[in-house]
């Protein structure tokens, strides 16, 4: 791979490769899902490693974007499905290793809470994370030019384009979700590869949501309408989301057809609205959906509200504890019910 990031001394990456090699050599895992250098500069792409000698392909740097929990779910659910057609004596267990940052471990915890696979089927290689580079901010840095070479040198990003070099501090290129992330360390890990990442400005987490809430309703609706008008319903957000794993998505169902095909704006609005609603207390704010969106829809503005609501209404934060069930899968007798319509007061 000629692309990727010029490697400065990276102790986490070194440890990660060693541990991956050991796990594969000891046959503790069948496959490791990680990142390898992408074919373009300053990119990394998910990879699947099955042999110890391939472990040196693994990279860990701020270009590793996607939440890999999605692939863990895909691999294991396909395996479970395949095992149904196997004789009992030939049944085989599959163990998946995964390179997981804070948000990825939270997604894995959501899968475990929702009993998608067993804790023994996944080996988590925790990596500390200081945030990843947002592809749009990077493109803006390059001024829309093609990036020919790039390097992350400590806390500075340098890109080389046809119109010369440009540089910016890494902090300015990080994705929005990383800027206010409080999960810089894995929540759950079987193998640790490093510690001591600086914590982001987590106290500002809900500031954009609060600001949006204070706008007049008509402005909020206009914003929603405008953002949804960009959506082409390619469903990339759904396909990349680790919490979206229904075998048949409501958007693909034909009986009933919840979301009509066609260009009516309300269908797109409903698709997005409903997909987002499924994320109540299940969105880990990994930013994968916004990163893959080809139209740049501001999904985070809405998803973050659901995160805030899960906290405010149900005292729940997505994927931080194995014991806690999903907030909409449970209830408390003391749940808030100020929203209940009660004309004339009194009542029961």
């Amino acid at each position: 791979m000629s692309g990727g990031t010029a490697t400065v001394e990276n102790p986490v990456e070194k440890k990660l490769r060693e541990e991956a090699k050991r796990l594969l050599a000891d046959k503790k895992v069948d496959v490791i899902v990680g990142y390898e250098a992408g074919t373009l500069p300053l990119t990394a792409t998910p990879c699947f490693i099955t042999a110890p000698e391939e472990a040196d392909k693994l990279v860990w740097n701020p270009c590793c974007t996607q939440n890999l929990a999605k692939f863990v779910h895909d691999l294991l659910s396909q395996h479970h499905e395949a095992q149904k057609r196997v004789k009992p004596e030939a049944k085989r267990k599959k163990t998946v290793g995964v390179v997981a940052r804070g948000c990825t471990t939270r997604s894995l915890i959501i899968h475990l809470q929702e009993k998608q696979y067993g804790r023994d089927e996944v080996v988590i290689l925790g990596v500390p994370c200081g945030g990843y580079v947002d592809n749009r901010k990077l493109a803006a840095l390059a001024g829309g030019e093609e990036i020919r070479e790039g390097a992350i040198d400590g806390s500075e990003v340098v890109v080389k384009t046809a119109k010369g070099n440009r540089k910016a501090p890494l902090g300015e290129l990080l994705a929005d979700c990383c800027l206010t992330c409080r999960f810089n360390e894995p929540v759950l890990a079987d193998v640790e590869t490093g510690k001591g990442t600086p914590v982001a400005a987590a106290d500002k987490e809900y500031e954009p949501v609060g600001a949006f809430e204070n706008l007049p309703a008509e402005e909020r609706w206009a914003y929603f309408e405008r953002e949804m008008a960009k959506c082409i319903r390619c469903t990339a957000c759904r396909n990349v989301c680790p919490s979206c794993y229904c075998r048949i998505c409501f958007a693909d169902q034909s009986q009933p057809r919840w979301v009509d095909i066609g260009e009516n704006a309300s269908d797109t609005q409903l698709f997005q609205l409903m997909r987002m609603y499924h994320m109540v207390g299940r969105c880990v704010d990994c930013g994968s959906c916004t990163a893959v969106c080809p139209m740049g829809v501001d999904l985070r503005k809405f998803l973050k509200k659901l995160d805030k609501d899960a906290r405010d209404l149900f005292g729940h934060r997505a994927g931080v504890s194995l014991e806690e069930p999903a907030p909409l899968g449970t209830y408390k007798e003391t749940d808030k019910e100020e929203f209940i319509f009660n004309p004339g007061g009194g009542g029961h």
Partner: peptide
């Protein structure tokens, strides 16, 4: 009780995106 949670989240989200709160109303009648 399970429904109450679903509706609380739905109503809050709908008003967040600017749909009038009184379009969707929830109540109990025995």
């Amino acid at each position: 009780l399970a429904a109450r949670r679903k509706f609380a989240a739905l109503k809050s989200f709908l008003s967040y995106i600017g749909v009038e709160g009184d379009r969707t109303l929830f109540t109990w009648v025995s």
